[in-house]
Design a protein around this nucleic acid. Sequence first.
DNA 1: CTTTTGGGCGCG
DNA 2: AAAGCGCGCCCAAAAG
Length: 575
Amino acid sequence: MAFLYLDIETDNSQGLGLDPFRSKVATLQLLLPNGRPCIIKDPENLDALKPILERNIVVGTNLKFDIKFLKHHFGVNITQIFDIMIAEQVLSGGELTGFTKGRSLKDLVFKYCGAMLDKTEQTGFKHGVPLTKSQEEYVINDIKYLPQILKQQQAKIKATGLEAVIEREMSTIPSVVWLELSGMPLDLKRLKEIEARDTHRKEALEAELKKELSCAGSQQTLNQTPSIKHINLNSTKQLTEALKAKGYKIESTSKEALSMYAADPLIQKLREYKKLQKKLSSFIKTMPDFIHPVTGRIHPSFDQYGTRSGRFSCREPNLQQQPSRGEEGAEWRAIFRARHGYKIVAADFSQIELRILGELAEEQEFIRAYTQGIDLHRLTASKIFKVPLEEVTKTQRSIAKTVNFGLNYGMWKNGLQLRLREDAHIEVSLGEAEQFIRDFQQAYPAATNYLNRISKEGLQKLALRNRAGRLLKLSTPRNEREEGTVKREAKNLPIQSLCADIIKDALKNIYARLEPKGVLFINTVHDELVFECKEEQAEAVSRAVKEEMEKAGSLFLKDLPCVAEVTVADYWRKD
DNA sequence: CTTTTGGGCGCG
DNA sequence: AAAGCGCGCCCAAAAG
């Protein structure tokens, strides 16, 4: 097996050069193992090259892009990959998140070879038009530095012991290709019905609110009447002023700030307005624009290393933040609907972050609960309220749930009070909140010790490694407030990142089993994987996904089980 | 005029 | 005494 250095240029004459469904490959450049460059102009098929591409390790930058084109146009399935952009992120400990922030080819060529790459030719390629001299030079330049970069990165990987993480990230790339080509199915008719109803409702609320709020303004300050009359409800500044004029003691218009007026009719109306405004502007309005003209589906861009923890991020549109909570959320998720004769299989890990905390901290009470199938929130409730397990009330359990999750993130009493108010609609004093935290710490001393230890270690070293070997860099704090942030990050990142490693490991094996069967991989949301498959496949797909997710969990968690819950439905459902 | 920043809020 | 972690998107306001 040898290294093959690869890059492609795509036809950008319609400005669609990034779209594998609407653009052709204009050139394919290879650097053969013997160092010889080779340019294939306007490939019609790659039958001769296919075995070579599939049997060697393909090296390049942001290879998901190239591989998508080669798979879609030529049926070439590249699975052995070394992507220098992804490698750089692994080496940087997740510092280089977001696009073109020091991880592009240009950046890496400069960093490792000291050369300046001229990218001005990048967007000028066209299928069927011969290369100019300058274009030819450009495409060779794009591959000629790859061997040097690879070599230096490999040395660093070895020196830092990041081989396993590199391996995991590289073997995730075929799944990202699978994901982006698959796309999410959308029921546009259902979306339009929701849009009509919500737009109507929002406009009614807007009119009422403007009337009530401008009224207060004219009483208060006569000369400002015109501006207040046309209050923009989306302007936090104007809205704060208007509410202050009405006598509300607020400094911000966030829902937390407004939560102390939860019983006030005007505030209720305002919160409903804000919710609808958010839903309409962020989700409803733009979604139809993302329907792909060729596939009729939604094809977001996924970044497998989009976060410091190694989680995926997603954009245009972000399918990781679609409303899901409550009745409204359930209704919204139903717009993501499988084709006729197909089902959507969604699998998510049950309370995986708390399980990871239990494992890492060797917290025997967590281990006992998860091993024996005791509900951890109920267990915590019984401990902090000092009642037997079976006597825990609904309210007590929901308080305990907030405490369990919050402590994982290093929450303080004020934060706990706020979260209880927001999530559980439970009002507690600061003293009570403080007591809950103490009770938690007393009930779970090992978890408490672990979190204290790791936060100190994080602050001291400004870098951590998770159980899967992933490097987690923390930024140097400039003041005490930032020190606090670093300590909280240090508590959370080893847990969050291990979840990312587990899901990536599962994904690699799921790809091998399900992609060849024509199953589509349509979304991933941190601890959840979503697929679309033929109805008759749904049972087998569910089993395979559950099996691989739990197997991946047991690779890293030894003392307690990881459980994946699978649902099969006509649409993307959360159970 | 365009770009950047910050508040706010959707998800895990 | 003490701002709960990780993201992307929309909008308004400020900055260039």
